[in-house]
Computed example of a mutant assay.
Amino acid sequence: MRQAIGEAVLRMVAVLALAAMLGPAVAGAGEDGPVVIGAVYNLTGGQQNLDVPSSEGARLAVQRANAEGGLFGRKVEMVEVDGETRPEVIAERTKALFEGAPDLAGVIGLSDTDMVLAAAPVAAAEGRVFLTSGATSPLLPRQVPDYLFLAAFGDNVQAAAGAEWAFESLGARSAAVLYSGGSTYAQLLQGYFADSFAALGGNVLAVAAYDPGDPAAAVAALPPVDLIYLAALPDEVAEAVPALRRAGIEAPILGGDGLDIGGAWATVPEARAVYFTTHAYLGPDSPDPAVIRFREEYADAYPGHEPDAFSALGYDAARLLLAAIETAGSPEPEAVRAALAATRDFAGVTGTIGYAPGSRIPAKSVTIIGVESGRQSFVASVLPREIPQPE
């Protein structure tokens, strides 16, 4: 875990206290007060490994904005709440966010489809943009029309990239798909992979859902194949990967960004020939100037914390929303929504972000990272040729 549960709970209390304290001041601030954005993250619960780094990145972006003079000569404030990885709590706290800070220009946050669907409709009902920093379902924009934007690529894109890379670089011609039962993210991701792999000429010999608490039963039924595709949530990776290796399966394991668990890979000694698609490579050996600068800023802000792709996504999402506010010329919500929709070439740490007319999902390349003995390394950057339609 990135942080002890006790520390996360203390942070949650502090964040909620800050929101309550800011609310009255923000509500009456008018044009002389701060420019305020909201943030909803799961700082506790099963998704904290994604959302704690993402929230750290978002806060860093706000710090950078204020160090550069804020917006329109006004300070930027981010009011943040903890959804506890519970959809009912997320919906409740998102409502409370608007009650305490009714002048919010927009809201960022969350890294999972089911969690976003608890928060984004609340923001849309308030006429505010919800920019998810890490959720990847390509169905989200149609589920919350007009107001929901993604900062990341869609699952159909990362699945297609993974399938092409496995087919061409690993020479995989047969695959078995193992996915987390009950997760919308995992269900969509595995379907897009199976479609893409089959379209390339590969054979998907088995598709099995596993119980997150006991993946061994599903693993035991898998046939011999060239590749295992694992669609898992981050808190399940440390159980699912060892279950495959302990069953004697030595085929390469490929998954999506749910396998991007950062330094926690060091605690999974069975991680051999594991690969996953994600949003950026943040390793210290990256030659990317944007990554180098981000790592330096992150190290200064959070000593001892190693940034990952979700840290960078939180940073990009906050900066993207602030850029839209600046382009709009004010934090007026409808102007901000229009400015965000018109974004074409925003330079982020995770790549260039832009929205084609009528789309609220950016077209971005996909990074593939390999894991061997707990160590991660950059493998490839892939922009897939053929992408399954969202369905």
Rank of each mutant, 00 (worst) to 15 (best):
T343N: 08
E99Q: 15
E306C: 03
P390S: 02
A318L: 07
L150R: 10
L18E: 15
V225R: 01
P34N: 10
A61T: 08
P212S: 05
I261C: 01
G154Q: 07
T367Y: 05
A65Y: 03
N156W: 01
F346D: 07
A14K: 13
G6Q: 15
S381Y: 05
D345H: 13
W165E: 00
Y147V: 03
E326G: 05
V26G: 06
P331V: 02
V26E: 09
L227K: 10
G127W: 09
D32Y: 09
P141V: 00
L340E: 07
S133L: 06
I249E: 10
D316K: 06
G358F: 05
G28Q: 14
G191F: 01
I37P: 02
D112K: 08
G23V: 01
L117Y: 10
S377C: 00
Y147D: 06
F346W: 14
A238Y: 03
N42V: 03
A342P: 12
G134I: 04
D288H: 08
P307H: 09
R59V: 11
L150Y: 09
V40N: 11
R246H: 13
G191C: 04
A218G: 03
T278D: 09
G134F: 00
G374C: 05
E297V: 00
R64F: 06
T44M: 02
S365W: 08
A338W: 03
A186V: 07
T278A: 01
A338K: 13
G351K: 02
V15W: 15
T184H: 13
A58C: 08
Y302D: 11
V122Q: 08
A216Q: 13
G202F: 01
D300R: 15
S111E: 11
V336H: 03
A120I: 09
P215T: 00
Y179T: 03
Y355H: 08
T367W: 05
P252T: 08
L188E: 15
I387Y: 07
V237W: 00
A176T: 02
G162V: 00
S381F: 07
V382W: 03
A198P: 12
A161S: 11
A220N: 14
E31R: 14
S137N: 09
E164T: 03
K95T: 15
L97W: 08
D260Q: 08
G109I: 02
M12Q: 15
V371E: 03
V157T: 14
G109W: 01
I325Y: 02
A27C: 11
R173H: 06
G370Q: 11
P212E: 04
G23P: 06
V237K: 07
Q389W: 07
G33R: 05
S133P: 10
A290T: 14
G181D: 14
G304Y: 10
A163P: 07
G182W: 11
